[in-house]
Computed example of a mutant assay.
Amino acid sequence: MRSTTTWGTYVRFEVLGPLSVADYRQDQRKSLLPSASKKRVLLAALLSRVGEVVSTQSLITEIWADQPPRKARGALHVYMAQLRNQLVTDVLPERRAQIVTEPPGYLLRLGGAEFDQHDFDILVKEARNNFDTGNLPTAFKAVSGALDLWRGPALAGLTDGELLSVYATCLDEEYVAALELRIELDLLLGNHRAIISELTRLIHDYPLRETFYRHLMLAYYRSERQADALNCFLQLRERLRNDLGVEPCRPVQRLHQAVLSADPALDHQFARSEFMARVPS
């Protein structure tokens, strides 16, 4: 995996934000992104199943939904030929990405090209492995690096079709899961005061994501703001009751009781020691 700030000679695909594909060489970047929206959708669809065949029918549906033109297959073939040509650069052949025709459709082989989703997955896996072994600073660095790859909502502007809508939703879920891990690491590392404003924004952006409320309650409590922690719980409970007719999950309810009783187990140093005691030796 290469840092995006390291210049060399390679092609890089990016889906963690608006679709991007570029040829990097020395200190220059040449965009290879198709200008036509239909070709962008096709490229994104191939990236959503990179290394796997995407059927011709799926691609037609993604572009035209339930109103394909009479010669949709012919038009699709032309678009694919144009995409192939656009991806051909003077990068060494073994480092090129390649669109391959393979029944019942097409597939994209990355070859030596880079892909930001793969980089993200590698960094998150590294973070979780280090978290599980108690190497918290290294885990924090890895998951922060993974989150830094994001440039906005996945495939922004290209998710009208079902295939790309599902793909973008899955990517966004992976982003939120990585964010939850990073915030949990912040709490274990004693950064509770620094993340209060971020968590306040997150519960606004994800009003039914109970993990963020739990993190905010704990950050408030460790920052000597017990009343704010309790109000955070009340806010969540009211929202869940009004929107879904349910109560907060058991972990959040247990945290609420612990905050009410000022349980010493909530203190940062105690929680850090308990976590490290559970790490396999």
Rank of each mutant, 00 (worst) to 15 (best):
T211D: 11
E126P: 00
P68N: 04
M276E: 15
I203A: 05
M276Y: 06
D27M: 02
A97H: 04
G161H: 06
A72S: 15
G145L: 01
A194C: 02
R2G: 11
L149C: 07
L123V: 02
A262H: 10
G51V: 06
L108I: 07
E14N: 13
A97M: 02
L149N: 08
L163H: 10
P248Y: 04
H204K: 11
G161Q: 05
Y213L: 06
L255F: 09
N242L: 13
K71L: 10
Y206W: 09
D243L: 00
S20D: 14
E224I: 04
A154N: 07
V252L: 14
R241W: 06
N231S: 15
S35D: 12
R225S: 12
L208G: 04
E94G: 11
V78M: 10
L230P: 07
K38P: 05
E180R: 14
F212W: 01
L107K: 14
R241G: 05
E198N: 10
S31E: 12
L76C: 11
H268R: 12
V246G: 04
V252D: 07
L43S: 06
D172W: 00
G112P: 09
F120N: 09
S48L: 02
C249W: 00
A97E: 03
Q67R: 11
R128H: 08
L199D: 01
E184I: 01
E126I: 02
L47Q: 06
Q257M: 08
A113D: 05
Q269E: 15
D132T: 03
L189Y: 04
E174G: 11
S197I: 04
D243S: 13
L149K: 07
S58W: 00
T61Y: 05
D172A: 13
S197R: 12
A113K: 05
S37C: 00
V91W: 01
V252K: 06
L32D: 09
L32A: 08
G161W: 01
Q57H: 09
P248E: 09
L46D: 09
D148A: 15
G145S: 10
L187Y: 02
E94C: 01
H118N: 11
H204Y: 06
A156S: 14
P69V: 00
R40S: 09
L46Y: 03
G161A: 10
L92W: 10
Q257I: 00
Y167E: 11
K125D: 13
D23L: 12
P69Y: 00
S20A: 15
E224Y: 12
D243A: 12
R109W: 03
Q26N: 13
H268M: 05
V246K: 10
D263Q: 05
S165P: 01
L158P: 07
R151L: 10
N135M: 09
G245N: 02
S165H: 13
R12K: 11
V246E: 15
V143N: 05
H204V: 13
P93L: 11
I196R: 08
A22R: 12
L240M: 13
L110M: 11
P248V: 07
P34M: 03
S281Y: 07
L236T: 10
T56D: 10
W150K: 07
L83F: 09
T169S: 15
V78L: 14
L179S: 10
H192S: 15
S273K: 14
A45H: 00
N85A: 14
Q253H: 06
